Simulated assay, not measured.
Amino acid sequence: MDTEEISSRLEAAVEKLAAMEHERWAHWQRYVHSVGEWQSDGSLVIAPDLVARWERQIATPYANLTEAERESDREQVRRYLPVLKAALAR
């Protein structure tokens, strides 16, 4: 398989991967909303300890995350592998 064919197959997988990414994002947002406290004006307040943890993770390069945090990221990436494998196996 040449580079052009690989590129073509991967591009065809983009829509499936984009749908998966949207579901991943929606799942995360459901979680964030579930741990927050809804206010009467419709805003959402998130506990300071969660905000502090997420801010630390945002500011931390992947290589400096804890092993558990890196494994969580790996778990998310592994969900994409079947789509990529299928795209390359055709």
Rank of each mutant, 00 (worst) to 15 (best):
S8H: 15
S40Y: 12
W38H: 10
W25Y: 06
V83Q: 02
H22M: 11
R30Y: 02
L65A: 05
S43T: 08
H27T: 03
M1D: 11
D41E: 09
V77Y: 11
A13H: 01
R78V: 12
A19G: 05
L10N: 01
L44Q: 01
R9F: 15
L50R: 01
M20K: 13
V32S: 11
E15V: 08
V51D: 00
D73H: 05
R70N: 04
A52S: 06
W28V: 13
D41P: 00
D49Y: 02
L84S: 04
L84G: 11
P48T: 06
W54L: 11
V77W: 11
A87Q: 02
R56T: 07
A52P: 00
W54G: 04
R30E: 06
V32M: 14
S40H: 06
S7A: 10
D41Y: 02
S43H: 06
A89N: 02
G36W: 06
M1I: 05
L81K: 00
H27C: 08
S72C: 03
A47R: 08
R79V: 03
A47H: 03
V14A: 15
A63H: 13
S7G: 13
L10W: 08
L65C: 08
W54C: 12
Q57E: 07
R79L: 08
A86S: 12
S8M: 12
Y80L: 05
W28P: 00
E55I: 00
R79W: 02
S43C: 03
P61G: 12
A47N: 04
V14T: 05
E15H: 03
E75M: 15
S40R: 08
M20H: 01
